[in-house]
Simulated assay, not measured.
Amino acid sequence: MNQFAIIVAGGSGSRMNSDLPKQFLPIGGRPVLMHTLAAFRAYSEQLSIILVLPENQVESWKTLCTHYDFVLDYQLVVGGETRFHSVRNGLARIHAPEGFVAVHDGVRPFISTEIVAASFRKASDAGTAVTCVPLKDSARQLLPDGGNQSVDRTAYRLVQTPQTFRLDWMRQAFQAEPMPHFTDCASVLEQAGYPIHLIEGSYENIKITTPEDLVWAEAFLQKRKAEF
């Protein structure tokens, strides 16, 4: 069965206090996004990878690829106004009649091949596979009256990516008009009436968004090097 990965990288460097978009910031000697793409290519040489970038970042990315001598087989697509539009632009590049599509954040560079494989397996069996992890900390719910109350943290999950779906289901779901609660692909598929199935993720599969995340990422890479 055809397998595709849409890597969405549309962030800025605002929370990083950086002029560089966060996906272009270096960790371990090369930009975050290169680690992410390499992780998906390591999963399979046959995987069709589609990278979605904002139009104003395309030339910078090409310059980085030349500078770092980064050569990897993928298609580059210009993104849209929101994440929803960017994913839809990536979907439009897929011409196969059927298959499975994994959508992943470009700033989650530590995704493992095992999780990617599990995601495709679950989507093949059930149609959808959304990566998540249990909450580590206690959680409280904010109430409309300004108060708050404790909630059972075992009843909640933190959602990650990849989120993998049947291609035909994705095409149908993304015909919808964008809505404020479409914060990820799972919410789009759920709105279209498709069941959402969860798979176990990893606490190492962090989304790099703040300067503290970069410190953790460098430490994790050093740990990996020491293990090999």
Rank of each mutant, 00 (worst) to 15 (best):
N56D: 15
L72S: 12
I50F: 03
E59S: 14
L167H: 01
D105S: 08
P31K: 14
S18M: 13
D105N: 14
Y68T: 08
C132R: 02
G80H: 11
E45C: 13
I94R: 04
A9Q: 02
A217L: 05
N2C: 12
P54A: 10
S119W: 02
T131Q: 02
A226E: 11
D125F: 01
F40Q: 09
R157P: 05
S18C: 15
V77W: 06
V151G: 04
F70Y: 11
V8A: 03
W169A: 00
G127D: 07
V159W: 00
Y74A: 09
L25G: 07
I94T: 07
M34E: 04
P21D: 07
K225N: 08
E98P: 07
V159H: 10
E81C: 09
D19Q: 12
T209S: 09
G146H: 11
A192W: 01
D168A: 11
K207V: 11
V52T: 05
F70M: 12
L91F: 03
I115S: 02
A139I: 12
H181T: 11
D152A: 10
A219R: 11
S119E: 03
S187C: 13
G29Q: 13
P21V: 08
T66M: 15
L189G: 00
A126H: 03
L135N: 07
V8P: 00
V159R: 03
V71P: 05
L72H: 14
E200W: 11
Q222Y: 10
G13Y: 04
I196T: 06
P195S: 07
Y203T: 13
G106Q: 00
A139H: 05
V58G: 08
F100D: 00
I49G: 02
I27C: 00
H181Y: 12
A155R: 10
S138A: 15
L51H: 04
N17H: 12
V77A: 09
A92L: 09
G193I: 05
Q175L: 09
V78F: 08
L64Y: 12
R121L: 03
L33K: 02
T161S: 07
M179G: 13
P54C: 10
E212C: 10
I7P: 00
H104K: 03
P21W: 03
Q75T: 14
E200M: 06
V52S: 01
I115C: 01
R171K: 08
G13P: 01
L221R: 02
I196W: 00
M16D: 04
S14A: 15
I199P: 00
L20D: 04
V159E: 02
N17P: 07
S187D: 14
T63F: 15
R171G: 05
R121F: 00
L76S: 04
A9V: 05
A9G: 06
V8M: 06
F165C: 03
V107L: 15
S60C: 13
